[in-house]
Design a protein around this nucleic acid. Structure first.
Lengths: 243, 243
DNA sequence: GTGCAGAAATTGGTTGGACCATTGAACCAC
DNA sequence: GTGGTTCAATGGTCCAACCAATTTCTGCAC
């Protein structure tokens, strides 16, 4: 009832260009890192102006699908297919403590669900991969006394990837990005993340045991410790970090 | 240790244009629906070519921040601020059904958490607003026998807004378009959404009663019914909806 | 004055051509 | 090999013009 009879597209040059290009990529089986045809060549082949090609590529660049290097060429940055779906996510974030807690709330919701789904759907290979990341992280934790944030992140990424839903990883990556806007100044809490350490293994155990509810519960505990750390840190400095 | 000495940026015309434009929007306090300056004016004022302005606007358009209407002008479609974070979500190889299920999993995670937070944090005014949306939705449901998707959506938005965390609404909004692509073609299930109807009020009751766990449980039930409807619809048509 | 059709101005969309800046490869001197 | 130099390829920017959709203005009929 709302809007049948969609507006006819009398002009959609850029979209047509992108569709054609997606088809080309598919046909040539191009993968990430490989080089696309020159803008000039595309313009000539598709019978459109180079400017139009550029606008189309600009869109793909904005979506992170493609990278343009002046003097070199245009390269695929991710797998593209003619039937992709894009959902631009824009986060207007407060750069303050409240904003940080906001990202954690999202993370709590997603992390719990992803861990549960992972316990249901992960294959053996994926579980092995998660365990490998876990081992790496624990080793880094022993060696460098706590600062294992990179390996920590990779562990979580592996869990998200094994959840079978790519959106989890992508959304959390956005949260991670926002999180890192503050991470440079860890609020004075030096042993940040210590408390969350043991839960990584308990989460993994639940996943390996195919226990979704357990995995969800452990994930919630992990986030809770991070939240506590954060609140403690905020109480520590007590200075209003308005910028 | 990781990446000091970042690559120096010798050219970043488009980014500069967008930054300037974001500053302009902020200074003029422009909101969604309002008109931006002409491309030609922007080009002149910023001392760049109109082409460059167009590439910049193309990026914003791709991100859904702006809408260009030939012959009319360029209009803001969402609130923009100089410090936004963009993270386009890409669902590869998605026939629409799989994509929709993916978004539903995200929605399940966020909806449950948001309802719980809402039960804890919503003020009286916000609860009243939610109830108003609920009444509107129920009225629309009675009148138009089921098709209450717009009002339904507004109810959920109100809940997200009252959760005290703007990220919930922003993330779900990114998936809204995909939901709507389906609402138009309800998969042959004519009474789509009927099953979820009663849970809207039970969710509200829990929120009003300050019962986070109850709200979470009811939200999960609601999503479960939507998932069931969807699976039923997919089973109904049984035709591979490759496009 | 009102209403409406047609002209004119406005604005995004497209084109073609030119030139600049960076890259990378080939080449050369040492 | 190392370090420059040259040179072609390629993305980045600019310009000027025109096309197409929209909006606004104008003038005529009533």
């Amino acid at each position: 009832m709302t809007d049948l009879l969609p507006p006819i597209q009398t002009t959609a040059r850029d979209d047509a260009v992108l569709k054609a290009l997606a088809g080309f990529v598919r046909q040539e089986a191009l993968g990430p890192g490989e080089k696309l045809p020159t803008e000039r060549i595309l313009a000539e082949r598709l019978k459109v102006s180079r400017n139009t090609v550029r606008e189309a590529l600009t869109r793909w660049e904005g979506l992170g699908l493609v990278e343009r290097r002046q003097g070199s060429g245009t390269y695929l940055k991710a797998a593209v297919s003619p039937d992709m779906l894009h959902m631009p996510l824009t986060l207007a974030g407060g750069n303050d403590f409240a904003g940080l807690m906001s990202t954690l709330e999202i993370r709590r919701a997603l992390e719990a669900e992803a861990a549960a789904l992972c316990a249901i759907r992960a294959g053996k290979a994926e579980i092995a991969e998660i365990e490998r990341k876990l081992d790496l992280m624990e080793e880094a934790f022993q060696t460098r006394a706590g600062m294992s944030s990179d390996e920590d992140w990779e562990f979580h990424q592996a869990v998200f990837r094994a959840s079978g839903n790519p959106l989890f990883e992508q959304i959390i990556a956005a949260m991670y990005e926002m999180f890192h806007r503050f991470w440079e100044h860890p609020l004075g809490v030096r042993d940040f993340g210590h408390a969350s350490f043991p839960y990584h293994r308990t989460i993994f155990n639940c996943i390996a045991a195919r226990d979704p509810d357990g995995a969800r519960a452990e994930a919630l505990k992990l986030i809770a410790t991070v939240e506590d750390d954060l609140k403690r840190g905020a109480a520590n400095l007590k200075l209003s970090d308005r910028r």
